[in-house]
Amino acid sequence: MPIAVPLSSYAHVPETQEALDWADLPTIDLSLNATPEGRAQLAETLIDALRTKGFFYVTNFGISQAEVDSQFAIGDQFYGLPLAEKLQYVPDLENGEYNGYRPAGRRVLSSGVPDRVEVYNIPKPEVPQAFPPLIESHLPEIRGFQEKLHEHVLTPLLTLIATALELPPDALTNLHQWGKRAEDHLRYMKYNRHPAEDYERLEEGDGLYVTGHTDLGTLTLLFRQPVAGLQIRDHDTGAWKWAKPLDASLTVNACDALSFLTGGYVRSTIHRVHVPPRDQRDVDRLGLLYFARPNQGVVLKTLASPVLAREGFTANDFERAGKPAPTIDEFTVAKQTWQQSKSSVFRAKDGQEIVPGFKGQYHD
């Protein structure tokens, strides 16, 4: 086992002082999950949050800030490696692979500005991957962190959703088992700052680092990020609101697979990343995320839930179109290929059918 490379301490930058239009999001306090009454209350709050907002905060999830900051430090140190070393770990992005390093400059933003976003994905232990020495030396810590997220956050949330749908408590956790191969991954994501002239050009266009989109899995977990950027589109009004960085929290959103499994009862949440406020444009934006997806081979068909049957949500996009529902791995490869293939044209693939019955879309 390699000796862990020493880490520098990681300090979060100050929050913006600008008056932004923040989203009003509900909070799921997992400390309430300890009693039957608390679980019933959380299940009701959670399903309402998923259906009306699509985003919510999670607090008291049993992972210390020191553990979180250590992951930020690993990500920060990874991005400090020479580009030539990072480029040794680029997967076949053109054909839907995504575990490993994705360099900046593969997308064109509005006004023709190249993106400056770097991504590094670490899958579950069952998925083979080569790691740079820095990551290899911290792999036990990273694996422990991934498993804690699964146990302390994902499992309680999936159990609460199943309860709200009047399904057996393990109906969703059985589709998301830690010890089985799946497309879950931990991500360190860096939005490198742009030169001033880029920001001027971006503001002449749509002002975005990442266009409005949905995530392809079940739930996405985002650790507190003080550099403002994430914006959420309201399900009902279509208005965009900023997601406030709440202390000691996770920001969680619903994704495509959960929408398919619930026949659209829970909608995949549309979100985007805006350029930071002016008082935060002199710093990079480092993100720490976990993308939860069903185990490989799970077919994305609507669950037989009494709630879904009563409410009339008995068929998802594929089923309504008379198409066979894909497995999560088939859908993952198809959507990742659509998202990641290099392009020199802004929104070149908008509206392209990526699997029969489902089109890839960007959202304004």
Rank of each mutant, 00 (worst) to 15 (best):
Pro2Ala: 12
Ala4Glu: 08
Tyr10Phe: 15
Ala19Met: 10
Ala23Asp: 08
Leu25Arg: 10
Ile28Arg: 06
Ser31Tyr: 08
Asn33Thr: 08
Ala49Asp: 07
Lys53Glu: 13
Gly54Lys: 06
Phe55Ala: 04
Tyr57Arg: 09
Gly62Leu: 08
Gln65Lys: 13
Glu67Arg: 14
Leu81Trp: 08
Leu81Val: 02
Ala84Arg: 10
Lys86Ala: 05
Pro91Thr: 07
Pro103Phe: 01
Gly105Pro: 01
Arg106Thr: 06
Arg107Ile: 04
Ser110Trp: 03
Lys124Ile: 13
Lys124Leu: 09
Pro125Phe: 03
Glu126Asp: 12
Pro128Trp: 01
Pro128Met: 03
Pro132Met: 09
Leu134Arg: 02
His138Asn: 00
Leu139Ala: 01
Leu149Lys: 05
Leu160Thr: 06
Ala162His: 04
Ala171Asn: 06
Asn174Ile: 08
Trp178Asp: 06
Met189Ala: 09
Pro195Tyr: 08
Gly205Ala: 14
Thr214Gln: 13
Gln231Arg: 11
Ile232Ser: 11
Gly238Trp: 09
Asn253Leu: 07
Ala254Gln: 03
Cys255Trp: 00
Leu258Lys: 01
Ser259Thr: 03
Gly264Leu: 07
His271Gln: 08
His271Ala: 08
Asp282Glu: 13
Val283Trp: 07
Val283Pro: 00
Val283Thr: 13
Asp284Thr: 05
Leu286Val: 00
Leu288Lys: 01
Val298Asp: 04
Lys301Ala: 15
Phe313Asp: 03
Glu319Thr: 04
Arg320Leu: 15
Ser344Met: 12
Glu353Pro: 06
Asp364Cys: 00
